[in-house]
């Protein structure tokens, strides 16, 4: 099998960009009492790859980003939360892409909300406390808002950046 150098390069740059976005995000204070509320800037990259390339590329970059970010800036617990969120998010966005019912903005909203839901599920498993589900409304709310913002920027990137050039 011949290695596709162009694709390899794109995925490498994408991974680096996603990690930088994850890191930059830690400097943006989101002063809410509920853990797990964040902008989700790294989802820009996942969204972009999902639309421009394919699900496998987006999932691979997302997985590598989560693992490396946790290794460099996070902890075992933060890795478990991010991994659960990212896995559910990429699954939902992938399914939505197949159905083609939503634009990138809709996919981003669904991805953000499912990311937060995945984190809550992981927290329930790790903490053994179902009451954490009470955070779900707040996290769905923040997911819609951040998902819309990230989706809008993502849609812009999709229309402006041409990978074939």
């Amino acid at each position: 099998m011949k290695t596709n150098v162009r694709k390899l390069t794109i995925l490498g740059i994408s991974t680096a960009a996603a990690m930088v976005l994850s890191y930059v995000e830690t400097f943006i204070p989101v002063s809410v009492a509920v853990p797990g509320v964040k902008l989700g800037l790294a989802n820009l990259v996942t969204l972009f790859l999902l639309i421009k390339l394919d699900w496998k590329s987006a999932a691979a970059v997302s997985a590598v980003r989560v693992a490396l970010t946790a290794l460099l800036f996070g902890s075992a617990a933060s890795f478990a939360y991010s991994a659960a969120g990212a896995a559910l998010s990429i699954l939902v966005m992938g399914l939505l892409k197949i159905t083609g019912v939503f634009s990138p903005v809709g996919a981003s909203v669904a991805g953000a909300v499912s990311h937060n839901a995945g984190q809550i599920l992981m927290a329930i498993v790790l903490m053994g406390t179902r009451e954490i589900a009470y955070w779900l409304p707040a996290l769905v709310l923040s997911g819609v808002v951040t998902g819309l913002a990230v989706g809008a920027v993502g849609a812009l990137l999709v229309s402006k950046i041409d990978l074939k050039a």
């Binding site: 939503f102 634009s103 903005v105 809709g106 909203v109 409304p137 769905v140 709310l141 819609v144 989706g151």
Partner: peptide, 21 residues
Amino acid sequence: KRLRNDIILSVALLVLAIAAW
């Protein structure tokens, strides 16, 4: 149509979150 679906999805999620709260 997709834009309309996006809006429906977002509003539905918001309503759901507020109702659950």
